[in-house]
């Protein structure tokens, strides 16, 4: 980071670093044996890294260009010899350094905490999100989204709001809805849902292989027939011959993560390129 970037962004960087260090100190000193602290640690591990990414996107990315426009200091910065596009590239590169370092710290703290939780008898939690490349790609994509929104709106508060909503929606959509479908799922027939897999969908099949939603079938057969044997007869009577479970087996987690990482990485590059192109179109280049 050069003097100018540090002079302008130092408050953000210092506050971000302080937040990460405080969270790290709390998590690493937490006694994870009790059920209450265990739940707390789970919540922190689930929400902590995404929250850091949101802070980076909203407070670091969105104001990066928007604040210069709002204070009109872009007129000072971009009327010097260094063109606006080069300024943007340098400023983004300078800020990505602390983003990567802090995300690395977040990742290490999360992994240490997870290891301590696994050492206890209570069931731990999956560590899908804690893969460092994926975490880096998600945080950089958020930062890039903030930068582009800032370039487009030229308004700090507006860009922060849009970035918050858009990035939270993206992370929720990918994490909750899209993730199991990143690769074609594996279908198990007439089997109970195994442990340690990622569940995609489940239900029943009729003779022709058409899928029937589990909920619809169960409301007809299970509710009216308390005895399991009678339920089976009911199912057959409704033309249902098999049940199915679609899953992503544990062996595929690496591939799923790679696909998700690729998606976020491409998104980050596309967003930064778009911000660069918008600035280039707006400003004259000599």
């Amino acid at each position: 980071m050069t003097w100018l970037t540090w002079r302008i962004e130092r408050v953000k960087v210092l506050v971000g670093a302080a937040l990460v260090l405080i969270a790290a100190a709390v998590l690493l000193t937490l006694n994870v044996n009790g059920p209450v602290t265990m739940t707390g640690a789970r919540v922190a591990l689930t929400l902590g890294p995404p929250a850091f990414a949101v802070v980076v996107a909203v407070f670091w990315g969105a104001p990066l260009v928007a604040r210069e426009y709002e204070q009109r200091t872009h007129l000072v910065l971009w009327s010097q010899d260094r063109p606006a596009t080069r300024w943007l590239a340098l400023r983004v590169a300078h800020l990505l350094l602390p983003v990567v370092v802090l995300m690395f710290v977040v990742n290490v703290v999360a992994r240490l905490t997870l290891d301590r939780m696994r050492g206890t008898a209570i069931q731990a939690m999956p560590d899908y999100d804690l893969w460092l490349p994926l975490q880096l790609a998600t945080v950089i994509a958020g930062f890039a989204l903030g930068v582009l929104v800032g370039v487009l709106t030229r308004n700090v508060v507006l860009s922060m709001g849009i970035t918050l909503v858009a990035y939270a929606a993206l992370r929720l959509y990918v994490g909750v809805i899209a993730r199991p479908h990143l690769l074609p799922p594996l279908r198990l027939l007439d089997k109970v849902r195994p442990l340690d897999v990622m569940f995609v969908a489940g239900g029943y099949l009729d003779r022709d292989g058409n899928e029937l939603a589990a909920s619809a079938v169960q409301s007809v057969c299970v509710g009216e027939h308390p005895v399991i044997a009678a339920q089976d007869q009911c199912l057959v009577a409704h033309g249902i011959v098999r049940s199915f479970v679609d899953i992503q087996p544990a062996s595929r987690l690496t591939d799923l993560r790679l696909v998700e990482f690729g998606g976020y990485a491409v998104l980050a590059i596309a967003l930064l390129a778009a911000a660069w192109l918008v600035l280039r179109r707006r400003e004259t280049t000599r």
């Binding site: 971009w78 707006r282 004259t284 000599r286």
Partner: peptide, 10 residues
Amino acid sequence: LTMIAGLLQP
């Protein structure tokens, strides 16, 4: 003036 200064694309 801003076009002369290179701050605005004509």
